[in-house]
Simulated assay, not measured.
Amino acid sequence: MGGSESMRTDRRAVMLEEIEVCLAGHPRVQDASVVEQGDRLVAYAVPTAGAALDDEQLRDFLKGRLPAYKMPRYFMVLDCMPLGPDGQVDHAALPDPQAVATATQASSAGGAGQPSERARYLADLWAELLHCPVLASDNFFDLGGHSMLAVQMANRVHRDTGVRIQLMTLATQSLAQIAATLPVVESGSATGPGLRSRLLGKFKGMLQG
């Protein structure tokens, strides 16, 4: 039993190393590290001096080079890798991408109309349908969505907000881009028929005022 567990661990370590080598092949990546956090793969990259680099560039670079099951769930660009006393990457010191995203959303939250509020509404809906955490930079189909779920999601959004999302945009746009097309969603509002009533009531009040 212990031998089988050791073999699985060795295979995972080899897979992580393969992903790191592939990621390090990006011309703007100076250093790369890939770790498992729970059931997700997280890729970290340090850009070469003076190079501009973001998570979408890294994701696109790996898409044609790795099978889907090896694709990291999250990508983070760091100024430098945290190192331990032995000079190796200190995996425990690598930032949690979800914690960073939550802090960023909290710091940018403001009055009604902030894009973060609309993105929060859509992220909650996607997370409910896809059964996984969702970031503003995520793509619906990259998270495991399919045409049936896409139709279900679009119907929910239409029911809640009156806006009909074009399904073709789900294949090419991030959650943040799609959320920007939605009307303002009040912070903390739940999805459902009541939300649309509150939104329509708010719009009518604006017109009458």
Rank of each mutant, 00 (worst) to 15 (best):
P82A: 13
G87E: 08
L78R: 08
L122N: 02
L94Q: 00
E128G: 07
F75N: 02
T104V: 11
H91Y: 12
L125D: 09
D79N: 15
T104C: 11
G87D: 10
Q88Y: 05
Q98A: 00
L130A: 04
D79C: 14
S116K: 14
A101N: 01
L125W: 08
P85Q: 15
H91P: 09
R120D: 11
D124W: 14
A93N: 02
G111E: 04
D79T: 12
G111W: 00
D96A: 07
P85Y: 13
A103N: 01
M81F: 03
V89K: 04
S107K: 13
E117F: 11
R118E: 06
L129E: 11
A109T: 03
A99V: 03
V100C: 05
L129A: 09
V77H: 12
G113N: 01
L130Y: 01
L130S: 04
L78G: 08
P85T: 12
P95M: 07
D79P: 12
Q114L: 07
D79F: 13
L130E: 01
V89D: 05
A112P: 08
A106Y: 00
A103T: 04
D86V: 09
F75Y: 06
D90I: 12
A99N: 05
P85R: 14
A103L: 07
D79L: 15
S107E: 13
H131W: 00
R73H: 08
G87F: 13
G84Y: 11
R118T: 05
L94M: 05
G87T: 08
S108F: 10
T102P: 03
H131Y: 02
D124S: 15
S116L: 15
A119H: 08
G113R: 07
H131G: 06
P97N: 00
A101F: 03
W126M: 00
L122V: 01
V77P: 10
G110R: 00
V89T: 08
A92W: 11
D90V: 12
Q88G: 11
R118K: 14
Q105R: 15
D86Y: 11
D96I: 04
D90A: 15
Q98Y: 04
A119V: 12
L130I: 01
Q98N: 03
D86G: 13
D86W: 10
Q105V: 09
Q114C: 13
V89A: 08
C80P: 08
G113P: 05
T102H: 14
P82E: 11
E117T: 07
V77Y: 10
E117N: 12
L78Y: 04
P82S: 10
G87V: 09
Y74I: 07
V100W: 06
Q105A: 13
V77R: 10
L129W: 04
P115E: 07
L122S: 03
A123Q: 15
P85H: 13
V89S: 06
A103F: 05
D86F: 12
P115K: 11
E128Q: 12
G113Q: 05
R73D: 10
A106E: 07
A103W: 04
Q98F: 04
A106P: 02
S107N: 10
A103D: 06
Q105Y: 02
A119E: 14
L83K: 09
G111A: 02
P85E: 15
Q98P: 01
D86I: 07
F75W: 01
Q98E: 06
C132N: 06
D124I: 14
L122A: 02
L122K: 05
F75V: 00
T104Q: 13
L129D: 09
A123E: 12
L83C: 08
C132I: 05
A123K: 14
R120F: 10
E117Y: 08
